[in-house]
Computed example of a mutant assay.
Amino acid sequence: MAPLGVCLVLLAAITAGTWVLSLVTREYSWVDRIWSIAPVVYVWVFAAASGGDARLVLMAVLVTAWGARLTFNFARKGGYRPGGEDYRWAVLRERMPRPAFEAFNLFFISIYQNVLILLFCLPAQTVSASSRPPLGAWDAIVAVVFLAFLAGETIADQQQWAFHRWKAAERAAGRTPTPGFLQTGLFRVSRHPNFFFEQAQWWAFYGFAVAATGIWLHWSVAGAVLLTLLFIGSTVFTESISRRRYADYDAYRARTSAIVPWFPRSVPAATAADAHARD
């Protein structure tokens, strides 16, 4: 079977499995739990089928590094433990009628997200179907950029982890943590730097398709585009929760870039208050 066919079979099995598990356990983070694992499998399928093509093996090694780091971070936050469901699904369940959420679970959480995971891996298909020229300078640049984004996400997640451990320690000591959300380090220049670096890695991954073909635009860019759209929606939803939890979150929004790291803006306090009142 062609590597894409193998991946499609795996996709069908993973999609069915995550959906059934969500019904059995009433936890809806099963796709989150395989998010960092399935891409490693998909890309190695293409690398193995190529007979060890250097570019595809390099792509698979980089995705393995991405997956190992993300799996570690997800595990230490308790994502694989029973009850380790993403808090946002519980909020969404409260906002939606039960039948609507069950349809959302099937079509968006289980089917769409699993399809998306395969899609952003499919620059490997473009490389596999190319004439496979030898590795060159462009591949080296793409690999270095990918690793730089990987390092950025590692730093952002570590800063977030340290902050949440500090919050837990403050609560355990009977104190109210202030501030209630992270605003320093990379979070001073982006409200969601980990979101930025996660997307950026998959845009860099698409760069290997360009390197292999010499053509800038391929259908396999669709995965990176759709991933970016997913993160835009996730950012809006996440921030709707944060704005309800923290009175000073609007001031943070007013001065700090949403996704792309950028210099903080100087915004009068009244401006942020006015923006909140308009919303």
Rank of each mutant, 00 (worst) to 15 (best):
A275H: 06
P134M: 03
F231P: 04
H218Y: 00
R253K: 11
H192A: 14
F104C: 07
T71M: 06
Q201L: 14
P193T: 15
P97K: 07
F149T: 11
T126S: 13
V267E: 08
L119R: 06
A137D: 15
W202S: 04
F196Q: 10
T238Q: 10
T176P: 08
L135K: 08
L11F: 08
P177W: 02
A143C: 06
E102H: 00
G233E: 03
T71V: 07
I109F: 05
F146D: 00
R255E: 09
E239N: 08
L186S: 15
W203P: 02
S234H: 10
A54F: 14
R88E: 05
K77G: 07
D53G: 09
R26A: 04
Q199D: 09
P193W: 12
T228H: 13
G83N: 01
T178K: 01
F72V: 12
S29A: 09
L147F: 08
Y246N: 12
A48C: 03
A169G: 07
P123H: 09
S110N: 10
R33K: 04
R278C: 10
A270W: 13
V144K: 02
W19F: 14
V61M: 07
E170P: 09
V142W: 02
S50L: 02
R76M: 15
A124R: 01
T184K: 12
R76E: 13
R175N: 12
I232F: 15
V57E: 01
L227M: 06
W216L: 12
L92P: 10
L23Y: 09
W89T: 08
V9E: 06
R93T: 02
D274S: 11
D157P: 03
S22W: 11
N105T: 03
Q125F: 14
E85G: 00
T15R: 08
R278F: 12
A162S: 11
S131W: 06
Y112K: 01
P39K: 01
A200E: 03
A254S: 04
V221W: 13
D250Y: 06
P123K: 07
G78V: 13
A209F: 02
P261A: 12
L23C: 11
A272N: 06
L56R: 01
T235I: 08
N73T: 13
S240Y: 05
A156C: 07
P99E: 14
Q183P: 02
L4I: 12
R171P: 10
T176E: 15
A269N: 11
M59P: 01
L4V: 11
T235H: 11
S220V: 07
D279N: 07
F195P: 10
A209D: 00
G79Y: 04
P177A: 04
A103M: 08
S110M: 07
A173V: 00
H276I: 00
A75T: 03
P268C: 05
P179T: 06
L226I: 07
F208I: 03
I232N: 07
F108D: 04
A60R: 06
A124M: 04
I241K: 00
P123Y: 08
Y252E: 08
H192N: 15
L229F: 15
F205L: 09
A48E: 01
Q113S: 03
S128L: 15
R253G: 02
V221G: 05
S22R: 05
L217G: 08
A247R: 05
A100H: 09
H276K: 10
L186G: 04
W202I: 01
